[in-house]
Each structure stands twice: as C-alpha cells, then as structure tokens.
Design a protein around this nucleic acid. Structure first.
Length: 451
RNA sequence: GGCGACGUGGCCGAGUGGCUGAGGCAAGGGCCUGCAAAGCCCUCCACAUGGGUUCGAUUCCCAUCGUCGCCUCCA
C-alpha cells in the first residue's frame, strides 16, 4: 500500500483508507482569474500521476478538485478591464481545462464551484458563529483561531511565532479582528461588488471556507487525502482545517503538498524558457508529455527547475519512448514481467518515488530493446510491463504518426531507391524528409518516418 | 524574528554510514547500417566549506558560506 509523506505528522506513513478499495482525494484547484502557469501544471500533473497510479493498483479513486470562481483577484480584474466577472471566470476555466487536457491530466471526478456552494458556506459560518467560534465585525465574519487548539499544525508554527514575523501582505479587516491571526470567513460587500445574501449581511465567502464545505460535502468527514501546492499549507489548508476542527468535524486524514517550480538563475521561469510565459505556451511549443516526464524524474516534494534545456531533454526521452513503442508495436500481448511491476510498486509506494520508478522504466525499455535486437521472446513481457508503467504514469506513447501522403510517398521511394542500390537518390530523399522535420528510421519492414 | 527546504559529475536529477558514485540529456568510442537513423555495448568516477562522531561519511552532528520557500487568500 502507498506510503506518503504526511504534512500534519511530518512523517512518511501509510495512506490509510477510510473505506477499503476506495480513495477520496481533495485537490485545491485554480482561482480562475488568469492563465495557468507552469507551477499549476506541476501540481495537477503530480496529482494526476498519483490518481492514475492508485487507479492502476485497482483502487476506486474519487478526485474532487474545485474551481474558485469568486475572489478578490477576479473582482479586481473585472473592474480593471471593465468586464463582467463571470466572463472572466468562464473564460479562464475553459482555458484551464484546455491546458490540462493537453497535458494529459484527467478531469477530476467532481469539479465543484465556489459560487455553487455559497448557501452551504453561509450555513456553516452561521454554525461557527452560533457555537462562539466565529464572530462578526462591520466588515466581515471571522474565525476565532485561538479556540482551535492545534492551530498551526500544518505549518508547524506557533501562533505567536507566526505573528512575530509576518509578511508585508495586506490583511483583510486587520483593524476589527479580535486576534491578528483570525481570518475572514465572510466579506461584506462593498458597493458594486458581486454579493450573496446572508444573515450577516450581503457579501461573499472568504477563500478558506469553500474548500471545507465542498470537501466535506462531496467526500465526507475524515476523507482520505487533501493535497495541493506547498504554498497552500498556510494559510489556506491550515484555515480550512481550523474551520472543520472548530465545528468538531474530522477533516482530512492525510495531507500532501507538492514542491515548486523554481528557476535556478533567479530569473522568472518565463525568461529562462524564452518563448514560454505560461502553461499554454509550454504545451504549444513543446511536447506536453515532456513536462510530465520531467516531473516524473524528480521527486514531487522537491523543487524542480523547468528550463528550455530540461524540457528539450525530456522531449528526447519521449522520442525514444515513441520509437520503442513503434518497434514493439507488433510483438503481441503477454503477461507483463512481474518482477518489473513488483519493483515499480515498491518505488511508487515509497512516497511516490517516481525518479526511481522512471529509472526502472528506462531500464526496462533498454532490456526490451536488447531482447528485441537479440530476437528473444522476453521482449513481449518487458514491453507489456513498459505499457503498464506508462498507464500508471499517464504517459501515452505514440507508435505511429499520421503521415501526409507526399511524405509517405517519399518514404516508399526511398525504399525503392535503396532496393535498387541507388544510394545517391536514397540519401537525397532522406535529406528531404529530415528537412521537413521527420525522423527517418530504417526497419526490417522498410522506412518508417516519425515526427 | 519563526518554520522549512536545498547546495551531487558538462547539464538535469536520485540515493545510501563501507561495491549503485541511480537514471536521463549531452559528449567520445564501438557494434549494427551502403551511409545514416533507431537500437545495443563501453567511457566520461561527483557529492558547498571547516570541524566533530565513527574502524570508516557524500550519507549522522555542529558551525560557516550560499540559494530558496512560507509566515493571512500565491500550485
């Protein structure tokens, strides 16, 4: 069974399932106010791999990932651009899923929207007020964090220490709060802002309330795993948890956080990648699978730098895999090599050791290629194991490309020239294909061209 | 001020108290090929600095230098 680092206990421990055979996962999704960036891509890819792996092991996975479609950033942009805020959220959401689709990220099982849960949030906030864990001021309703015993669990910080430093970010409602760490559950609407009615006054929910309500509604108390980027540990996850605890509810059983995309040179990612300044550009300009590959080769908790060189190296890896898929396309089905799969699971179950697992994958590909060259029957089982691992990773190998008629014709002509030992002509044809961007491979069955 | 990461061979990136210096990309050599490509084989012997613990440390401890993240709505 999968062992994962748990942020709350700061230990790698088994992911204990509330219900055998089923996993409920909540992933904090995007706030839809702008294009997704490379870091968003990392988060979704990490959890996509997690999900696919769990499914591959036979578990039934329910992955809930929300869309935050009401937020200050959205309102600000709407005001700046003088557009309806819904226009922004709809557009950004479609762009988001378009980008995720290109990355091969499977759609979540459920995609709750914050705006669909306002009533439930109002109810929950009302309960918190009733039991004295939250209070209203003129600008909003706040959670009284002092009443939450182990507040700071996820960040591993004492309340007093957190307050001492502090960042220079703006704090909503700072003047009226009882305690500096109290956070806003409901923001009273200012004139012209989108708002929903509530007994506290018209307003909108704070960010942290939506995820508690949605996760508990869809997954229920004590759900298995809550995940997101490192930066969500605090305040977001800490504050989600605080609300659940304040209500006396069991929240997530296990917490998982992925590392950041960093830039080694201290430059913005966009600069080091040249023509890439967001995820859409990345998937447009490079093989989207390369990003997944790059991430698989590093551990999900560590930082990873995404640079032109990195991505291009990963593209070459994928090209090699495609080539492998092509040359093993007709080896036939076989029972996957069990020794390989056992090792694969060992790597993955050890806190998602995808670097080790990819090393195993490369080794298996190499062995299969060698077996193929040697004419060994072993190739089928190894190739099947490779396919299994790729399934668990969400890597799609391309064995055949759509070849335009004129390119296919040239390949045929190339074979004819070679058969006639007209090598000058064959070389010329091959050069033409190369210039057109095709990789030309000579196989036992003739010339194969691929992108 | 607090919490926490990290500094590994040309590049990216794992990992461990003493035979893994993983793996990928790049580079060089070889096999294969009409020549290539693809594939296979081989080579390139690192672990920020200074101490300490130890029979032995890249791996444990301490310090130093450097880089970075979070500390109220950023994956």
């Amino acid at each position: 069974m999968l062992h994962l680092y748990d942020t709350a206990t700061r230990k790698v421990r088994e992911l204990e399932l509330r219900e055998p055979g089923k996993v409920g996962i909540y992933l904090c999704g995007p706030t839809v106010y702008g294009p997704p960036h490379i870091g968003h891509g990392r988060a979704t890819l990490v959890y996509d791999v997690l999900r696919r792996y769990l499914e591959w092991t036979g578990l039934q996975v329910r992955l809930v990932s929300n869309v935050t479609d009401i937020d200050d950033a959205i309102i600000n942009r709407a005001n700046t651009e003088n557009r309806p805020w819904q226009e922004i959220t709809h557009k950004c959401e479609s762009v988001w899923f378009e980008a995720m689709g290109k990355l091969g990220v499977a759609r979540p099982s459920d995609i709750p929207h914050a705006t669909e849960y306002v009533d439930q949030m109002v109810t929950m906030i009302g309960q918190l007020v009733e039991i004295g864990r939250a209070y209203a001021t003129e600008d909003g309703v706040y959670l009284n964090v002092a009443t939450v015993e182990d507040y700071g669990l996820l960040v591993n910080q004492k309340l007093s220490d957190m307050l001492e430093g502090g960042s220079d970010r703006e704090v909503y409602g700072a003047e009226n709060k009882h305690h500096p760490a109290d956070f806003v559950l409901w923001k009273m609407a200012k004139p012209g802002e989108p708002s929903w009615p509530s007994k506290f006054g018209d307003g909108r929910p704070g960010w942290h309330s939506e995820c508690v309500v949605m996760s508990l509604d869809l997954l229920g108390e004590g759900f298995d795993l809550h995940c997101g980027g490192m930066d969500l540990k605090f305040p977001h996850h800490e504050n989600e948890r605080a609300q659940a605890i304040a209500l006396g509810k069991r929240f997530a059983n296990h917490w998982m956080h992925n590392g950041f995309v960093v830039d080694t040179e201290g430059e913005k990612m966009s600069k080091s990648l040249g023509n890439v300044d967001n995820l859409l550009d990345l998937v447009e300009n490079y093989d989207p699978r390369a990003y997944r590959m790059l991430l698989l080769q590093s551990h999900y908790r560590g930082p990873v730098s995404v640079t032109k060189d990195n991505i291009e190296a990963a593209e070459k890896v994928m090209a090699g895999f495609d080539s492998f898929a092509a040359r093993t396309a007709d080896v036939g089905d076989a029972t996957p090599d069990q020794a390989v799969l056992v090792k694969f699971r060992e790597f993955m179950d050890n806190d998602l050791d995808t670097p080790g697992a990819t090393a195993l994958l490369f080794d298996t590909v190499r062995r299969a290629n060698a077996a193929l060259d040697a004419g060994s029957k072993e190739v089928a089982a190894l190739a099947a194991a490779v396919r299994e691992i790729c399934t668990a990773f969400g890597l799609v190998l391309v064995a055949t490309h759509d070849v335009p008629a004129e390119i296919a014709a040239k390949a045929t002509a190339l074979d004819a020239a070679r058969a006639a030992k007209d090598f000058a002509k064959a070389d010329a044809l091959r050069d033409e294909l190369k210039v057109a961007g095709w990789t030309v491979e000579t196989t036992s069955k003739g010339t194969v061209v691929r992108r």
